[in-house]
Every structure is written in C-alpha cells, then in structure tokens.
C-alpha cells in the first residue's frame, strides 16, 4: 500500500516530464518557424501592426527582363496574353524623360495605397484594404461595375472578360469580376515573399525589396530610411505601399 502510495508521485513526475518533452518536440519547431517566418494562423486576421510594402530600385531593374511578370502569371494563374482584354497584374513600363531623353524600365502593379481610390469608389465594398495594407477585391461581392478601374491612377486593375479554366486553387478568379495584384497575399500569409520579388532576386537583380514598413528592423524599412524614394503620382497623396528609387 505504502509502496504504491510512494510510486504515484514518481509516476506523475515521469508523466509530466514525458509530456513536456513531447510537447516541446511537437511545438518547438512550430514556434521557431513562426518566429522566423512571421506567418500567422489562418483564423487570425491581418493586423494593422504590419503594413506590407515594397521598394523598387529602377536602376537595378533589368532592361528587357520580365521575370517578375512571368512569375506573377505562373503564381496567380494568369494566361500571360497581352491583348486589350487580357488581365495583367504586373507589367514592365518603359519611360523616357521628354526633356532629357533618359530612359528607364520598371515594374508597375497595384501600389496598395493607404488612401486607395478604388476602395473609396467601390459601391459594394468589394474593393477593400486589409488591416495590413494589402488592397484586394472580394470575389464574392464584386458586381463587375468597373468603377474601380476608372478610379485607379495606376491602371493596375483588370476585368475578367471571359470564362476561366485551370485556375490556381489558392488564387480564385472569376469571369465578370475585377482583379489586380494581391502582393501574392497567399504567400505573404505563409510568411513568404511575393512571387515577383522572389523571381527578381533569383535573377540576381534584387531590384525589389518586400517587407513590413511598420517594422523598423525590416530590410525594406532600413533601405527606405537611408535612400531617397518616391511614390508614383505623389501629387495625389495616396501614400502608396510601393515606392520607387531612381526615378
């Protein structure tokens, strides 16, 4: 009786010890991974503690290189066709200063404005901005009126003109709805970089830096702090999430 009484606490200790080890082995990597990747659980909403943004260095952007465009098309299931009715979420724009003749090439996509005109004008609220600054279109409430396309200063939006097949399940699209660059939100929520940024880095140009503008320790924040950068159509005071260096 006394033996059995004595053995119980030991058994409990063993049990707690084993549980702790199992729990540590199971949860540890997850916690570590969470810390590294800054990803969050699906049920956890986007937080205003972050503001995702991008800095594009036009001096590093390769003339004739469109790897960012190809990567975007692959990731988001776009056809890559460039007819007037085809969707283009990101495009390479060549600009030439009319006075000096200076030529540059840069990628242009949704600028994820803080004061987004597309969000303001959308009658149903389908065009919306997440807490973390990513501007998206809710595929369930977009009625396809295209007023957001009229309002966007960056010509960043496309209307799906025909039925779609072979879609990427992670990136639902639909005939009759408006769409645009999502900063590859499905990747960002997993703690990854947008496809265009990854492709640019893989090519060795490193013209695009993506990160949290609210985190002073993020690479994008550090570079922005030490480099002169501008917004496209800064006169509109939209506080874009995408900034450019070198123009």
């Amino acid at each position: 009786m006394s033996e059995s009484m004595n053995s119980k606490p030991e058994g409990r200790r063993e049990f707690l010890k084993t549980s702790a080890v199992v729990a540590g082995v199971t949860l540890g990597p997850g916690v570590l991974f969470y810390g590294v990747a800054q990803s969050r659980a699906p049920e956890e909403g986007a937080s205003s503690a972050n503001r995702w943004g991008m800095l594009i260095d036009t001096t590093k952007c390769g003339d004739g290189c469109d790897d960012c465009v190809t990567a975007c098309n692959t990731e988001n299931g776009l056809s890559g066709h460039t007819g007037p009715q085809d969707s283009q979420w990101i495009r390479k724009v060549d600009i030439k200063d009319l006075r000096t003749g200076y030529v540059q090439s840069l990628p242009m996509m949704c600028q994820h404005c803080e004061n987004a005109p597309c969000v303001d004008v959308c009658p149903t609220g389908a065009s919306m901005k997440r807490e973390d600054g990513i501007v998206l279109v809710d595929r369930h409430s977009c009625i396809g009126c295209r007023y957001c396309m009229m309002a966007c200063p960056y010509k960043a939006r496309s209307f799906v003109h025909e039925p779609l097949t072979d879609q990427n399940p992670e990136v639902p699209r639909g005939k009759g709805c408006v769409e645009s660059c999502t900063f590859c939100v499905q990747r960002v929520d997993r703690g990854e970089q947008p496809a265009c940024v990854e492709a640019c880095e893989a090519k060795g140009h490193k013209a695009m830096i993506f990160g949290d503008l609210r985190d002073p320790e993020s690479e994008v924040s550090k570079v922005l702090k030490s480099t002169d950068s501008v917004e496209v159509r800064a006169d509109l005071a939209l506080n874009t999430g995408v900034r450019y260096q070198g123009i």
Binding site: D120, V121, T124, C142, G144, C145
Partner: peptide, 25 residues
C-alpha cells in the same frame, strides 16, 4: 452591363457610403 448582374442583390444590400456610386443607387 454589369460583369455580375446576378449579384444585383449584393449592390442593393451592401453599401460603401464613401462611394458616390453607392449613393447613386
């Protein structure tokens, strides 16, 4: 002419009051 005319009910039940288009409805 809407891209999704079947969602007219959405336009009638979801209003973004910052949108002049919603006010028009």
């Amino acid at each position: 002419d809407l891209g999704r005319p079947d969602r007219l009910i959405v336009a009638m039940t979801h209003y973004n009051f910052k949108s002049i288009f919603a006010w028009n409805m």
